[in-house]
Design a protein around this nucleic acid. Structure first.
Lengths: 215, 215
DNA sequence: GTCTATACAGTGATAGAC
DNA sequence: GTCTATCACTGTATAGAC
């Protein structure tokens, strides 16, 4: 049995794996941006240059973390979108499409690592650098296109322009909710909160469905 | 006539003013976060310690910049919300309330400084530190409460829980659109964009109004 | 190949000289 | 009051040990 060089991550893992796990734990504890690479490598019990050797840069570590967390969401979305019930005309119900798209994302809020990932995602959405764009696209373009097609089927009369705008608005409500900005909480002096993932999903599906059906 | 120590900002301004102007210009050119305090003070033609002397920290400079840009928006909102047309029952039209709230924010996208501010705002929304919260609150809590009251009047049958959730979703569509994440643009290979502030306002009002009216 | 020690330029911040 | 000198720390790069 190998002795632990640090008790912060499982000792028998490979160096890159230790770095990723330590990074994710620190991010979920203290938020992204306030954690330096040196803290990560120290917590992982590896040399401070190891992160650069294995990943190339701090941003590359973030991207790797993002990609590996995003994949299960995309797969779950894919599966749910593929399993949609169709009516006699072969079209799915709007609410079912929305749920299939939104639930895998909002369910992340149920675990601390999910919340950390969610912050990472929100940050990536709002940094316009080309690299981040590609990372987001690699993870989500495919399922976004699937969702757009399913929505077009569910809303055969909706013009593409409106479809795109409303999909964009839906992403806004989703990302904003996932990021937990806390504005409503501040406004209502914490007598109301948006942290309940299940209630959020139901409320969001109703709100967004009505928006998609607007004249 | 004072000779210019730099041609980057008006030479006769006070030091703090020069710093703020230089900061805003650099942010709008290169985005926030990639600009160091030393670059700002150099561009402003002042000593590198001046920013700390006058503001206390880099974050304090950002907050000051944010607050002074936010104030006109809040004032415009206040004026538009106060000037709402009321029907015979003394209630405003939902769409009018939404427009009064959303237009001052979305109009920012029409100028480069507005876009820079908008990014700053999006970034602030997603950093959960207590300080930033207070900054956002100081700028926007008042008009948010005004908007909530007007919305409650326009939608007398809507329960408070639903009102809060839907207001939260509206903030999501607004902030997300203002931040221009470019996801739809990537999905449609730039054959469609969400950068038109006027079209965005109209689409958003329709979408959000339907969401607020959902059963 | 994997990892380490070490160095480097640039950051935000500050104490203390002028 | 203003500015210089300096601090501890960041992300990054590389030469060389195992």
């Amino acid at each position: 049995m190998a002795e632990a060089t640090t008790d912060l991550v499982e000792p028998e893992l490979s160096t890159p794996e230790r770095i990723l796990q330590a990074a994710e734990r620190l991010f979920s504890e203290r938020g992204i941006g306030d954690v330096s690479l040196r803290e990560i490598t120290t917590a992982a019990g590896v040399n401070s240059a190891a992160a650069h050797y294995h990943f190339g840069s701090k941003d590359a570590v973030l991207e790797e973390l993002f990609t590996r967390r995003a994949e299960p969401i995309a797969r779950q979305r894919e599966q749910m979108l593929g399993a949609l019930k169709l009516n006699r005309q072969g079209t799915p119900q709007l609410e079912d499409v929305l749920r299939a798209f939104l639930k895998p994302a909002l369910d992340l809020l149920k675990t601390p690592e999910g919340v950390a990932f969610t912050r990472l995602r929100a940050r990536m959405v709002f940094e316009r650098e080309e690299v981040r764009r590609q990372v987001m696209g690699k993870s989500f373009d495919r399922t976004n296109e699937m969702a757009l097609q399913a929505l077009a089927k569910a809303l055969p009369k909706l013009a593409p322009t409106e479809l795109y705008w409303r999909f964009h608005f839906m992403l806004g409500t989703m990302v904003y909710t996932m990021a937990r900005p806390g504005r409503i909480e501040a406004l209502t002096h914490d007598s109301f909160d948006t942290y309940d993932a299940d209630a959020g999903l139901e409320q969001m599906v109703r709100f967004v469905a009505a928006g998609f059906r607007a004249p």
